[in-house]
């Protein structure tokens, strides 16, 4: 049967930063072909296909909260597979190989993580599950 694609509205102008992305204007309507958990979604816009940041897209029917898991304050253990240096105040800087707790998995690919007393956003693509549950 026909495949029904979710339509999303572009919230703000976006200029692509690598080859297979889409340039988008605020108000454009895109159809989502694939939602990658790292926050890049494969979209169709008119005759173009490419990746767009989920952080710039909102569902046509308003915020779709069913999709986004609730925060898990107990945390789930992940290991950093790549270092990242915070650019914004609410982000965390971590080195390669650090064990952290993921508290909230946001669809835009920026997860809320906790390391000791600190919490902040970290790119989900630089995290890998350890498979262990945190000891309470």
């Amino acid at each position: 049967g026909p495949i029904m694609l979710d339509s999303y509205r572009v919230v703000s102008d976006y200029s692509k930063s690598s080859k297979y992305e889409l340039n988008l204007k605020a108000g454009d309507l895109v159809d989502i072909v694939e939602k990658s958990p790292n926050g890049w979604w494969f979209c169709q816009f008119e005759t173009h296909r490419g990746w767009a940041p989920a952080s710039y897209l909102e569902p046509l029917d308003g915020p779709d909260e069913r999709e986004e898991p609730e925060p898990d304050y107990a945390g789930e253990l992940y290991k950093t597979i790549k270092a990242y240096k915070a650019v914004e105040e609410d982000e965390l800087s971590l080195e390669f190989g650090e064990i952290i707790e993921v508290i909230h998995k946001l669809l835009d690919g920026w997860w809320v993580v906790r390391k000791g007393e600190e919490t902040g956003y970290y790119p989900s693509m630089f995290l890998c599950r350890t498979g262990e549950k945190k000891e309470v």
């Binding site: 919230v11 703000s12 976006y14 930063s17 690598s18 297979y20 992305e21 605020a26 990658s36 790292n38 926050g39 890049w40 494969f42 296909r49 490419g50 990746w51 940041p53 989920a54 952080s55 710039y56 909102e58 915020p63 990242y84 914004e88 835009d108 690919g109 920026w110 956003y121 790119p123 693509m125 630089f126």
Partner: peptide, 22 residues
Amino acid sequence: SIKHPPQNPPPRPPAEMRRKRA
């Protein structure tokens, strides 16, 4: 290739989106 998402982290939400979430 186009089949694989970009290797760089996606941008943080723009101001418009942050206002809507708040």
